[in-house]
Design a protein around this nucleic acid. Structure first.
Lengths: 229, 229
DNA sequence: GGGGTACTAAACATCAGCGTTGACTACTGA
DNA sequence: TCAGTAGTCAACGCTGATGTTTAGTACCCC
């Protein structure tokens, strides 16, 4: 009697799905406490999988950590760029508000991936080789070089600022915003301020003629006289 | 002979200094791997102190964690605002390039405090009550309300963007910049781009009249016509 | 039905961190 | 000088994680 299904056995013949479940659980742990706190035991527990099974898929803790890292990297890329297939190469350039909304929605809907990415940035290794980061910078470069961005932009720095703050914001908000309505409102605040910032900056230029002088490249010179109007 | 100083005993009559050494070591561990990885054993080892001594100062691991957190919070505040004593209340407002340089230098010279702060932001608790954060926002508000910032700025969001990216940047850079010269160069790149961004934004406004329309508050309206010049 | 694959269960040795305890040392004050 | 106290240390038992091993069960396909 009920001998066949005893003791919560999984009976999963598909190793792929088990592997994914383990990686998903690993992502959750990773996003919670960072890569140093990732333990095989905890991951297996979360995945609802026997510890031995986890060790079957990933021989050591380090293997699991590395596999999780690259899996996360792939997932971020797919989640973010998956549905805009190969089109950005030559076709249209997304308008900045759409692109920003895309980024912010990604961050809000994927807090675990965001956290994992940020932990990776903070790790000693760095994410410079990350596919997602490289594509993001490349797209921003194309955008800027297309004449839509100011010519003396430091694209990498701007990419870093926008990316890191957009991914960190929902985390920061989640820590002290009550309901989902409040969170959505905070999300809007971020998008609005970011758009405002990229459109106009934050300083009243009239007060700082010497800074305007110093920081405006030769091409932006015509802009300096403007605020006086 | 040499019985009195046997076995590397510390012979430290001053508990304050021992406590500081422990806290300093705790900060190092905290900055390295995050709050979840903070272990009394590792901290004691780093501090060159017996584990028992650490337990005398901080009865449990949690006590050490909390004490470290508030100590770090205090240190960030002091390190950043310590030498501008009470003067910012009514007297002068620092020019934005000086303030930014101050922030960036702090981040570069105190990577551990920066990392600790960022880990705190990423923790579930949040840093909203942090003295440093509150003062930073307050100063920025005074600055903006003094007419030096655009009127429709969302100060909190802008504070978050500038603070988080300024503190995260040196960490990101440190992960893949070779010498100190390269790091200094990267630091300058960040400051330049940040100044450029706050002065001018990142978009060529001519291309986005509808965005300019949408995101410019009533007070900034006179600025819209400017770029056409 | 038999063999291979995927998973579970349980036990083991090893190691590291936690928290406690008792003893040792140095300074203090009567 | 001598007891008391504060600071420090070494050792102990406990827990939990790592990685390995062995035995066993369910499933699939030939």
């Amino acid at each position: 009697m009920s001998d066949k299904s005893r003791s919560g056995r999984r009976n999963n013949t598909n190793p792929e799905s088990t592997r994914r479940e383990i990686l998903q659980a690993a992502l959750e742990v990773l996003a919670k406490d960072g890569p140093e706190s990732l333990s095989v035991t905890e991951v297996a527990r979360r995945a609802g999988v026997n510890r031995g099974t986890a060790y079957q898929h990933f021989p050591t803790r380090e293997d699991l950590a590395h596999a999780t890292a690259s899996w996360v990297s792939e997932r971020i890329y797919d989640e973010f760029y998956g549905d805009m297939v190969e089109q950005s190469e030559l076709s249209k350039v997304y308008p900045p508000d759409v692109a920003l909304a895309r980024l912010c929605n990604f961050a809000m809907n994927n807090p675990e991936l965001s956290r994992a990415w940020l932990f990776d940035v903070m790790s000693t290794q760095g994410v410079v080789t990350d596919r997602f980061w490289k594509k993001y910078v490349k797209e921003l470069s194309q955008f800027a070089e297309g004449g839509y961005g100011r010519e003396n932009i430091d694209v990498e720095v701007f990419a870093f600022i926008s990316l890191s703050s957009a991914l960190l914001w929902p985390i920061w908000v989640g820590a002290h915003a009550k309901g989902s309505k409040a969170r959505a409102k905070m999300q809007k605040r971020f998008m609005d301020e970011m758009m405002r910032l990229t459109l106009f900056g934050s300083l009243t230029r009239e007060h700082y003629p010497e800074l305007v002088e110093r920081y405006s490249g030769p091409v932006d010179a015509e802009d300096d006289a403007a605020p006086a109007a």
